[in-house]
Nucleic acid binder design. Structure first.
Lengths: 222, 222
DNA sequence: ATTTACAAGAATATCGATATTATAACAAGC
DNA sequence: GCTTGTTATAATATCGATATTCTTGTAAAT
C-alpha cells in the first residue's frame, strides 16, 4: 500500500494572503489606511472573492481591522497597543520556550544552532538584506520554541510576532541596540541548549522588551 | 459637535459566522466531517461568498481546518489536542486573571458578582437550559479576566474557550464533578475580589484541569 | 493481483455582474 | 450659521455562473 503524496495546489486566495500580510508587516500601508476592495483587486491582480477571503483571514489574526459594511482598514498604532503585544509575547513566548527546553531533543538543539548560524551570516554582510534578515530572525526565534509541542502556543506566538514586526519596522533600530540584541540571541541560545529554563526565559523577556524599546520611543506615553 | 453613532448593519457573512461557530461548538458536526460548500449553502440559506468568508474566518481561529483546493473539515479530536488546549488555557488565562486582579476596579468586582449570580440562578433551575448555561458560564469566566486590559490575551482566551467547549460538550459532565466545579467558581470569585492573585491563579488552573477531565476520560492516552 | 493511465464526474475556487449599504453633496428649515 | 432631510454617488457585500482542481471508477499493462 503506497500512500501517494496528494497534489494539493496553491490557491489565489492563499497566495495573496501571504503577499498582503508581508506588505502590511513591511509597512507598505500606513496605519489607519483604508483598504478599498477595488483598488486592492487592481493592485494584486485578483478578483473580488479571493481578495476578500484573504482580508477576512488577516482580520481574524488582528493584522487588519474589519467593520461590517465598511470594509477593511490597517489598524492604528499606539504605545498602548505595542505594550500589550509586547507583554503578551513575553507571557506566551517565555512559556513556550520553557516547555521547549523541557521537551527538546537533539534535533531541536541542532536546529537552533543552524538557524542562529544563518542569522549571524546574514548580519555580517556589508549591507544587510532586510527581507532576508527578517526571515532568518523569525526562523531563529521559531526554532527556539518549536519543540514546545503546543500548536496553540506556537500559533499565538506567530500572530504576535507578525503584529510586533509591523511596529519594529516603523522605527529603524539603533546600531548599538542592534548589537545588544544580537548578543542576547547568542545568550538565549546557549542558555536554552544548556537547559537553563529560568534564566533563558528571563533573558528572552528582556530581549523582547529591548526590541520594543525603539518603536516605543515613538510614543510619549503608553 | 455631535458625534452621531454610526449605523453599521450586520452582514450575512458575519451572521452565519456566529451561527456556524455555535453549531460546531455544540457538536452538530462530527469530528472529521467534511463541510461541503453546496450543502452548507443550502443548510444555512446563504450564497457561496459569505459562506466561504465565514468558514475562512473560522479556520483562522482553529475551529475548523482548511486545505487548499480541498475545502473545509471539522478537526479531529484527540487527547493530545485537548491537553494542548487545556495547558495553553492555563498559561494564558491564569496570566490574564492575575493582571485583572492587579488592575481591576470596582466595576470589575461588581461584574464578577453579577455574572456569578446569573450563573447560580441558572443552575438552580429544575432542568437547566444548556444553551443559557453555556452563555452565562462564558460570561462569568470572561468577567474574571476582562479587567486585564489586554486585547490580545482576551482574544486568545476566547479562541481557546471555544475550542475547549467543543470538547467539553462531547462528554456529559458528572453531577458530582459539576458541583465541585461550581464550588470552584465561587472560590475563584472570592479570591479574585480579595486580590489573592497567586491563590486565585492556582485555583483557576485546577478548575480548568478538572473541566477537562471528563472529556479527557474519553481518550485512553494523550 | 497490483499498478498505472485515463476519462467522467463532483467539488472547490474564482470571476463578473448585481443588490444593498454607507458616504458625500446639497438643499431646506430652524 | 447650524442642524436636518434628501438625493446622487461610491463602496461593500452578495449572487449566479464558470473555470480549475480533485476524486472516483474503469480499463489496460506489468
Amino acid at each position: 500500500m503506497t500512500q501517494i503524496a496528494p497534489p494539493n495546489s496553491p490557491t489565489i486566495s492563499d497566495d495573496i494572503y501571504h503577499l498582503i500580510k508581508q506588505d502590511i508587516i513591511k509597512g507598505k500601508f500606513s496605519p489607519g489606511a483604508k483598504l478599498a476592495i477595488k483598488e486592492m483587486c487592481a493592485r494584486y491582480h485578483v478578483g473580488n472573492s479571493p481578495l476578500r477571503e484573504a482580508l477576512t483571514k488577516l482580520a481574524a489574526t488582528g493584522l487588519i481591522q474589519q467593520q461590517n459594511q465598511r470594509g477593511f482598514r490597517i489598524p492604528l498604532i499606539s504605545g498602548k497597543d505595542l505594550a500589550d503585544i509586547c507583554d503578551s509575547r513575553i507571557h506566551i513566548e517565555v512559556a513556550a520556550l520553557k516547555m521547549a527546553i523541557a521537551k527538546g531533543d537533539d534535533y531541536w538543539e541542532a536546529q537552533i544552532l543552524a538557524q542562529f548560524h544563518q542569522l549571524q551570516k546574514c548580519q555580517q554582510q556589508e549591507d544587510v538584506d532586510q527581507a532576508e534578515w527578517e526571515s532568518r530572525h523569525s526562523r531563529f526565534h521559531n526554532a527556539l520554541i518549536e519543540a514546545c509541542d503546543s500548536p496553540s502556543l506556537l500559533g499565538f506566538c506567530n500572530i504576535l510576532h507578525d503584529q510586533f514586526d509591523r511596529y519594529r519596522r516603523l522605527a529603524p533600530t539603533d546600531l548599538k541596540i542592534r548589537a545588544e540584541l544580537d548578543a542576547q540571541h547568542r545568550e538565549i541560545m546557549q542558555l536554552s541548549i544548556a537547559r537553563e529554563a529560568t534564566k533563558a526565559g528571563e533573558l528572552l523577556a528582556e530581549h523582547i522588551k529591548l526590541s520594543a524599546r525603539a518603536a516605543m520611543a515613538m510614543f510619549g506615553n503608553r
